[in-house]
Write a protein that binds this DNA or RNA. Structure first.
Lengths: 231, 231
DNA sequence: CGGCGCACCGTACGCTGTCCGGTCGAACGC
DNA sequence: GCGTTCGACCGGACAGCGTACGGTGCGCCG
């Protein structure tokens, strides 16, 4: 039998969207996706646990919907860049911003394929549109899209546990960095000369500035491949 | 009380390393980290469940050890590149290869901080050493390291569920691509013009060639910042 | 031989996601 | 009016999870 889906046409009632809202709220407030349990979600919504299964086939579907939501929430500046370099930079930062919005949900994007619903398609279309406006089309556009989402994804995934500190300890980021630096500095200099030398710099690894820096380097390399405009 | 750690000096007996071996074997063979349960791991090792807790404080410690192991397994070609571009390319591909080795474990690297033990330090030192040999030192080296690991991480994370297909269905990758292409092509052309136009190209998103391509673009941009040699 | 420490593990507990089989109220036909 | 149907909701139960507790039995040392 097909899993009956609730329609939720009563405006005061439960809807799939409201469930996803609550799920995102939990994931964000706990900064830990594992804390999002079906029971907790139902309790937050003041609803029996099994009620949720009228809206989603299982928990995975809820997680997928969360990923879709944040992909769909991708926001672009109003004005469209016509210079390739500017457009690529804008889009890269937009990807990063989107992932920053819901840090604990990033791993959903990394883990699951969330392209069936319109959300990814919306984000994808938005990106492709802006790339096209800057003269980046065809296979090159696909590659740029892949690079941007991939780089932003890896960056946020790598960064999150490091700046937020281990799940639980409220992140005094500066303190964590200091400790990491000490750890590197205290290593055996004969075996790890470069690590010891760079002890002061290494813990700073993932920052916005670093992201933009890597992005700019890539852009510098890629703009040479954009055919010049004929307009 | 401190969690007593077993020493495992009996060569035929259980050791922490052997446990990590078995855990990686399960993760690799199942291609799904969730299938790695403590009970399954113990069964594979022909050992009582609680025996494992003599070697690791909890499951998280086992997962951390797995991450450490694959970071520590990072392999470099014997010869060291002295040209910055060649060195960066080699290192980028080495990162990707490392993650390809254990695809299902990639999300561990993304999720957890695994830099305390010597494994990451070993990989880090190896990379920094090769960067230095190519004239890339100081903050620039740190940025290059961050970019390379971040890009490779995002790329493999993004790629894994897409090429392997959804957890479970043995991946006929070509078939999956065809279906995705059809999905894109069937969208409303008025709302998603660019997506429809590129339907044929989009599903090919993450491939080795794409990774190398983005890597090369970045390298082209970054080599201009490497100070020229004075030797 | 007595005692101790260590490697090992059976059992039990609280938690998870989810199936089954309700209950209750509104809508409908007669 | 009443009987039926249907859809939204959910209580209870179940298998499986990670792991705390409290053993058991062996090897070693005095």
């Amino acid at each position: 039998m097909p899993p009956r889906r609730r329609r939720g046409n009563d405006p005061s009632g439960l809807t799939a969207d409201r469930i996803v809202d609550a799920a995102l709220a939990i994931a964000d407030s706990e900064a830990d996706l594992d804390r999002l349990t079906v029971r907790r979600l139902a309790a937050d919504l003041d609803v029996g646990v099994m009620t949720l299964y009228g809206y989603f086939r299982n928990k995975d579907e809820i997680l997928d919907a969360m990923g879709d939501r944040i992909l769909g929430s991708m926001a672009f500046p109003d004005e469209v860049d016509t210079e390739p370099a500017a457009a690529l930079r804008t889009l890269g930062l937009a990807f990063l911003a989107m992932m920053r919005e819901h840090p604990s949900v990033v791993r959903l994007l990394a883990t699951r394929v969330t392209d069936s619903p319109a959300a990814l398609v919306g984000a994808m279309e938005g990106v492709l549109h802006r790339l096209a406006a800057a003269g980046i089309t065809g296979p090159l556009a696909v590659r740029c899209y892949g690079f941007l989402i991939t780089y932003a994804l890896g960056f946020s995934a790598y960064e999150t546990p490091r700046t937020w500190g281990r799940a639980g300890d409220a992140g005094d980021a500066a303190e964590a960095r200091r400790r990491r630096s000490h750890f590197y500095a205290g290593l055996d200099r004969d075996r790890f000369p470069h690590t010891v030398d760079l002890a002061a710099e290494l813990p700073a690894l993932p920052t916005d500035e670093q992201f933009a820096d890597g992005l700019d380097a890539w852009i510098a390399g890629v703009v040479t491949r954009v055919p010049s405009r004929r307009g």
